[in-house]
């Protein structure tokens, strides 16, 4: 009680007008995106994985162009050489430098993953958004189409495509895009349908906001986090599908290489030269894990739930 007694008497007078402070917001001022960014940066695993992806991407672009070997130069005098100073990952059955081929293959795999995810993104977002915004009959028909596509096993469609079209990177991308976008379309549709019934969209409608402006200002900005997260999961899934196709022999043809092709070749020479399998396998595992962790990190950080 002593401290209380020592309070100066002049404090027991009415305080000055405090109305200015009543509505004051004490918290730091920033957008929801910034909040998400802060959360993402706190997620150490996601940050490390993002850096690894970046390094892999840079290496795959740089190594093949600065190395004295190319991915297709054969050297039959130096077949299946053990890793050495000259050939860090050894050479393959045709004496090609595995170091260059792994990075080249990684690049091709990343390209396929990115391109497939991007095409899925474009088709999926437009399809899903259009379906949700039109609603009614249009929506019903578009959803039936998706159900049919989901009903056919996608692997059959992809293999069919690969057999009909000339082999190559773009054929693989096209084949995977035929059905790959349905997940994105469904997600975007669900999100927009949910947003459409939210009161802020109704308010915009009442204020006379045009449909187009509603889409641009209200629907898309609130769908972006869902889209980004889905893309982060679509990339590794596309890379894996390509690897699988190459592994069963319907993917890229020699001398072009993707991680799937390299793993297939390495698997054939497993007993003689295990290093031919190990390095591309490590590369694909690293890529898959890193993308998944970054995707998870993004989902946690930019949780599409409304922040309360």
């Amino acid at each position: 009680m002593n401290t209380e007694q020592s309070i100066p008497l002049d404090l027991f007078t009415p305080a000055s007008d405090n109305s200015a402070k009543q509505e004051h917001i004490a918290r730091q001022h920033h957008s929801a995106f910034y909040d998400g960014w802060v959360r993402l940066r706190k997620n150490k695993a996601a940050v490390v994985c993002a850096v690894i992806i970046l390094i892999i991407a840079i290496m795959s672009a740089v190594v093949p162009s600065v190395s004295k070997y190319t991915y297709f130069d054969t050297d039959y005098s130096n077949k299946i050489a053990q890793p050495s100073r000259d050939h860090p990952f050894g050479t393959d059955l045709f004496g090609r430098d595995q170091w260059v081929r792994v990075w080249y293959g990684t690049g091709i795999s990343l390209l396929i993953g990115l391109a497939a995810a991007l095409i899925n993104l474009i088709i999926g977002v437009f399809y899903g958004a259009f379906s949700a915004i039109m609603g009614g009959r249009v929506d019903a028909i578009m959803q039936r189409i998706i159900e049919v596509l989901v009903g056919i096993p996608s692997l059959i469609i992809v293999i069919l495509f690969m057999m009909v079209l000339p082999p190559g990177v773009w054929t693989i991308i096209a084949a995977m895009s035929v059905t790959g976008w349905v997940n994105m379309a469904r997600l975007v549709r669900a999100k927009i349908l949910n947003l459409k019934s939210q009161e802020f969209v109704l308010a915009a409608q009442l204020l006379g906001t045009s449909t187009w402006k509603t889409i641009i200002r209200h629907l898309i900005p609130n769908t972006i986090s869902v889209i980004v997260i889905q893309v982060m999961f679509a990339i590794p899934s596309a890379i894996f599908t390509e690897a699988f196709l190459s592994f069963i022999g319907v993917g890229l043809t020699e001398p072009k290489a993707s991680l799937g092709v390299l793993i297939n070749n390495g698997y054939k020479a497993l007993r003689a030269a295990p290093f031919l399998l190990i390095y591309p396998a490590i590369a694909i595992i690293l890529i898959m894990i890193c993308f998944s962790i970054v995707g998870d990190g993004l989902r946690d950080a930019f949780d599409p739930r409304m922040k309360h």
Partner: peptide
């Protein structure tokens, strides 16, 4: 004719600043 909504959490677009929310009309 305008409307005031029930849920103060879903009636404002979370991606817009208050300035733009009010200025929409």
């Amino acid at each position: 004719m305008q409307m005031i909504f029930q849920d103060p959490y879903t009636s404002l677009n979370p991606r817009m600043k208050v300035m733009d929310i009010i200025a929409e009309g």
